[in-house]
Design a protein around this nucleic acid. Structure first.
Length: 424
RNA sequence: GGAGACGUCGCAUAGUCAGGUCUAGUGCGCAUCCCUGCUAAGGAUGUGAGCCCGCAAGGGCUCCGUGGGUUCAAAUCCCACCGUCUCCGCCA
């Protein structure tokens, strides 16, 4: 959630943020009114409560003759206090409801508008001219079937549509990607983590995934648990309700987990292959940082993602996602999209978000500053690598005979193999 | 799955049976200061979080795993839930 005091001091920034997101700026004024109301009712309650405590304490030492009279007054006061508390609670609840409905305030410079209004920051690498190389372009599934790397038919038999098996070299290639990325993140000072994939409601809500996109999340009703769509959820919950020491710099985690997404509302979209699936694997970067260092950490994660794509020989572009397409927690988001030869379009491979102190407030994540005070920390997340990268890898490195060249960095993880050959 | 024990202000503990200066005691740790030529030892003071009022000084409220309830009054009594530990059973 956002900082109420900051909102009180500077409501215009919040209104402008709402407008940029295409959201309702009136929410800001509703918040201000609810805040005002809550504070006045809280003060009234606290004053009465203090009075009641005073009186109640006096009963123990009251003379027997006065006892009855004091007790009578105390009972009366107790009724009033109960009433005042109920009013204060109701006002707090209303404020809370509004507060949880308010998305994060965007970072200055984020493009306004919706999904189509992103700003392309740069393109790196040049897509191969496959036609000029005499290659009849195959899509990732066709290539993978030649390599016996992916089996979507049996995936559907076992799990339904949007499920798949990675088989043989497909499975090995995924493992190679995951491990290569994890190792490099360890070198960068990230602590590797294998995380829970089922989480409690308050953790899922705290990360902001139960807002507008709640129907994307699997819920196990019998146990009241949610399946995570990314280990960001578990890693954000990891330090919930804790006070961290960030005086030596940000705390960085590299989480590995399976990820589950319902893909509700995407019927007929990306139905072929493994571009959009209900389950995949991901290495996720997650950082807890002092707010002053958040933007620098964000750039660092983006740089890591770009280095990965470059090392794998994947042409990509970086976009600064527009305000309306950010999701409730993010204040800024950069996506990296790799070139997809079979569709002649860009495909999102990474996404890194600066959530400033928004998630931290919901989850009770604070830091103790050098002067001994506490304040909410900033949280950031970014994609390390995902199963989807196989799609870009197979397509961009395909050869005329259906084989696929293994990018140099992955070879050590595949026993030195340089080429994945078609299985006859 | 069965049986039992237990969740207290960084850590460790007292308090819970018999509700009322518990406005949560004590030890350790930590911080500042004092004393000692240095060291060791000692002493004093302070030391949880959140919120509200206030320019400030200061004052007030909430929190003893979480949420309800009983009561004038709840760490303490009642109920539910969550978690931890021990033993048994089962199991990758």
């Amino acid at each position: 959630m956002i900082d109420l005091k900051a909102l009180r001091d500077d409501p215009d920034t919040a209104r402008a943020s709402q407008v940029a997101r295409g959201a309702d700026p009136a929410l800001v004024d509703q918040l201000l009114a609810a805040d005002e109301r809550r504070r006045s009712l809280l003060s009234a309650f606290e004053q009465q409560r203090a009075e009641q405590k005073e009186l109640s304490r006096s009963i123990g030492k009251a003379a027997p003759s006065e006892r009855e009279a004091v007790l009578g007054r105390a009972k009366q006061l107790a009724e009033q206090v109960k009433d005042a508390e109920a009013q204060a609670d109701a006002a707090a609840e209303e404020l809370d409801r509004l507060l949880w409905a308010m998305p994060n305030i965007i970072v200055d410079g984020v493009p306004a508008g919706g999904e189509e209004d992103f700003v392309e920051l740069r393109q790196v690498g040049t897509p191969r001219d496959l036609a000029a190389e005499g290659i009849e372009v195959q899509d990732h599934l066709a290539i993978a079937e030649g390599l016996r790397a992916i089996d979507t038919e049996r995936g559907a038999k076992v799990g339904g549509s949007r499920f798949y098996f990675l088989t043989g070299i497909g499975s090995l290639l995924e493992m190679a990607l995951l491990q290569w990325t994890l190792n490099r993140l360890v070198d960068e000072g990230f602590t590797p983590m294998t995380t829970p994939t089922l989480v409690r409601p308050e953790i899922m809500a705290g990360t902001g995934f139960l807002g507008a996109h709640a129907d994307e999340v699997y819920r196990l009703a019998a146990d009241d648990l949610y399946l995570v769509g990314t280990s960001e959820v578990a890693l954000a919950g990891y330090h919930s309700n804790e006070i961290l020491d960030l005086t030596d710099g940000p705390v960085r985690y590299a989480g590995f987990s399976a990820c589950y997404r319902r893909e509700a509302g995407s019927h007929g979209k990306d139905v072929r292959g493994i571009i959009r699936t209900h389950q995949f694997h991901k290495v996720e970067m997650f950082v807890y940082a002092p707010i002053e260092e958040a933007e620098a950490e964000h750039e660092r994660m983006l740089a890591f993602e770009e280095a990965s794509l470059t090392a794998l020989g994947l042409p990509y572009r970086v976009i600064d996602v527009a305000a309306g397409d950010l999701g409730s927690s993010a204040a800024r988001k950069y996506d990296c999209e790799a070139w997809l030869p079979s569709q002649q379009r860009w495909l999102e491979l990474t996404s890194t978000s600066n959530c400033t102190t928004f998630q931290a407030r919901r989850l009770g994540i604070r830091e103790r500053t050098a002067d001994g005070r506490t304040r909410p920390a900033a949280t950031l997340n970014g994609t390390g690598v995902t199963t989807r990268w196989l799609v870009a890898l197979l397509e961009n490195h395909q050869q005329a005979d259906g084989s696929v060249v293994v990018p140099e960095p992955l070879r050590p993880y595949l026993g030195g193999r340089e080429l994945l050959e078609v299985v006859r």
